[in-house]
Design a protein around this nucleic acid. Structure first.
Lengths: 333, 333
DNA sequence: TTGTACGCGTTATCAC
DNA sequence: GTGATAACGCGTACAA
């Protein structure tokens, strides 16, 4: 190494970390030598010594889903500002993958993880708290008050959607949901749905619920099934916008008008939702902020200062953003 | 460390790498000790020793753009299969960020980079080839035959779009492009546009071109500007789908019908394009495959076996996928 | 089959 | 100001 070629060894380290603590002359000498042998700093070795990898991990179901890419960007931006980099992995909603990937991340010595899991009460989370490993959950809400969380209250979100629909006069309200076993978010939204019906004294009808997978096509199929009902719903709540878009598509295949024939409300409010025809009414989830804030919380956790836990449970507001896919129920229907 | 608590030190390493080369008994003893002190393997330290980080980097403008999240997924999947993980960073189309982030990645000791840059002839790439650092370019095509590339021919893609429009009878064809200084992809698509016009003897009219930024809103603004032309275009080529979606939106604001009043063709064919009304005709770019194959090539490069360069320039096919946003020009227009 | 000892590229702690 | 030198946690001969 050309370091020695000129002079020292530990002085190089100083040049890198405290350039001012080195005489101007030797400093320049070292700089010159450095790009003579086109030296690049080895952050891994540095981390080995410091025991700080300057890396965090983010674990999501699928980066391809706009809601997740949005929140990922939030964590990347916050981490980037702190000089951290982020390793992102996809779990495709399968728990085994989650488990494996959390381990991979830990082996990579990430200092913390922003985690989205279907089972916030599962062994993964349990293990993490047992090991006192810094992490914060997003999207899925943990009952355990000891684990940090940033996200929205999905029950409330589901509630808001139905409240809105009922306010419009609808009483036969269907729901197309991401399979509960795949997503507890979806499950919670359904809970909100059910509770709201109850509140208004509307009987719950399981025939009006379909659980399916996360694709446009499935949304399309689902709506067709739903409309085949002898007494079909006049409004549909979809547990995410992708499903909603699929449903709209299916509806127009069937020659139905939105919102004249049936109202549709989605969840997430992904950017594309406002660009379909009619623009989709949806329960907004502030994804970017969620990622950003989750990372903020994570960085408070990493030094392990025992901060008040209350500070670590951030519930962001959902909001139904009204566009044109819903309308008041027509009389006589 | 509990390793010693029981027995050895380097044997632990063997247990990890060659479990079979260790006596059943001691092996189990070590396993037990490992999760007694809930040991996690330190992949960074391992890498330091091996000089292989088992990491690659991916550098893209913005993970939030569906086309990039799609290709990112492709590289993640391929890398994951090889036991590699990927660090992904966003450059927001700014060259200084690209430069800085490539360095960050190298300091992290990534073994290679899947790189999307606006300036495939710029100093970043030059430096990388000079250092013989493994990397493959995506999206933007490099003239330098020494650098690996996986992507589409954007000139050809632009050409196909215009060819299609002309085939439909259009002659006054506008273009809404991502600013050339921001994206050479956009520039190349415009080149294809221009050449195709020339081929058919249609005069090039700069008033029909707008360069703008990558947002729905900008697309919306752009189309309004374009339609204000005394002799407005009958068809518009948008250099990406986001812009196209914005344009469609703007058009309907103006009370124009698509495709009756004006035809729109996009580029990328992001998943959402088929869900707008009318479904968008677009030049398809196989993003997932691009990411996947780019990583495949990268892994051939990493061992530095001097493979034939020809093998390292993969041009995937574009294809105009016809939907319903374009129609033949009506007589008398 | 298992242990010793060195090296990987840094940082940190002392001396000089 | 600067230079030795011991970690950091792991691979890998080489020896036992």
């Amino acid at each position: 190494m050309a370091k020695k070629a000129k002079v020292s060894i530990a002085t190089v380290s100083r040049v890198i970390n405290h350039p001012d603590r080195v005489k101007e002359e030797t400093r320049r000498k070292i700089y010159k030598a450095m790009n003579a042998c086109n030296y690049v700093y080895n952050a891994l070795a540095g981390g080995l010594s410091t025991k700080r990898s300057h890396a965090i991990g983010i674990l999501i179901p699928n980066i391809t889903n706009p809601i997740f890419s949005e929140s990922t960007r939030g964590v990347q931006d916050f981490a980037g500002e702190k000089g951290y980099y982020v390793i992102s992995v996809n779990t495709d909603y399968v728990y085994e993958k989650e488990k494996k990937l959390v381990n991979v991340l830990r082996e990579r010595q990430v200092e913390g993880i922003v985690l989205t899991t279907n089972k916030p009460e599962g062994e993964i989370v349990e293990r993490l708290v047992k090991d006192r490993f810094p992490f914060v959950l997003t999207y899925s809400f943990p009952r355990n008050p000891k684990v940090a969380f940033v996200g929205v209250d999905n029950i409330q979100g589901g509630n808001k959607a139905i409240e809105y629909l009922i306010g419009l006069g609808h009483r036969r309200i269907g729901m197309i949901a991401l399979s509960f076993s795949l997503s507890d978010r979806s499950y919670h939204r359904w809970l909100g749905y059910k509770r709201c019906l109850k509140k208004y004294g509307i009987p719950y009808n399981p025939d009006l619920i379909i659980q399916t997978e996360y694709t446009f096509e499935k949304g399309k199929e689902a709506i067709k099934l739903l409309m085949r009902n002898p007494d079909p719903p006049t409004a549909i709540f979809c547990s995410n916008d992708i499903l909603a878009l699929g449903a709209m598509n299916g509806l127009s295949d069937m020659g139905k008008m939105i919102p004249e024939d049936v109202s549709i409300i989605g969840f997430d409010d992904i950017p594309f939702s406002k660009f379909v025809k009619p623009p989709l009414t949806s329960v907004r989830q502030p994804a970017y902020d969620m990622g950003w804030k989750a990372t903020e919380v994570l960085f408070e956790l990493i030094p392990k200062k025992r901060v008040h836990h209350s500070k670590h449970r951030i519930l962001l507001d959902t909001e139904v953003v009204v566009r044109q896919s819903c309308m008041p129920l027509k009389r006589g229907k």
